[in-house]
């Protein structure tokens, strides 16, 4: 992934989401060590303070925990928490956008469901 500096989503949120995705994909597991802000800064070519902000959000949401002098680690149950949170927030917003656009284009409910099924098969 590359961070998108043009996006209206702040870079530190993009970083937080990327780490969440790593947890969802089991590339980061419970009690596993997470990248430091300096590693993230190098990986994404961004200011370390920005990367640090991304980590802080995850810390505040209890997705990560801190061990003094050792770094940050994945909290138990983090994956389930992220799934639930993203379903509530992100997926609902995306669904709203799809429904709105479908309405504008006179797409019927059945056609929309058919379209989603078609896309799912492609994934």
């Amino acid at each position: 992934m590359n961070v998108n500096t043009d996006s209206s989503i702040p870079i530190y949120i993009q970083i937080a989401e990327w780490i969440e995705n790593e947890i969802l994909a089991d590339r980061l597991i419970t009690d596993g060590k997470v990248y430091s802000q300096y590693q993230l800064a190098e990986m994404f070519n961004i200011n370390p303070a920005t990367a640090g902000k991304g980590l802080t959000i995850l810390l505040e949401n209890n997705i990560l925990y801190k061990k003094r002098g050792l770094g940050m680690f994945v909290q138990g149950g983090a994956k389930e928490f992220i799934v639930e949170k993203r379903r509530d927030e992100k997926l609902t917003i995306l669904a709203k956008e799809i429904v709105l656009e479908a309405k504008r284009l006179f797409v019927s409910d059945d056609e929309l469901i058919e379209l989603i099924k078609k896309v799912q098969k492609g994934c």
């Binding site: 500096t5 870079i11 800064a41 190098e42 070519n45 961004i46 200011n47 370390p48 303070a49 920005t50």
Partner: peptide, 29 residues
């Protein structure tokens, strides 16, 4: 990239002037 790497290796106070903020956006705090 060299500025960023050097900054990470040895943090220091940097002021970088530009008329293109876009170009230095990823670097600046």
């Amino acid at each position: 990239r060299a500025i960023l790497k050097e900054y990470i290796a040895f943090p220091r106070t940097i002021i970088i002037s530009s008329h293109h903020l876009h170009e230095i956006e990823h670097l600046t705090e």
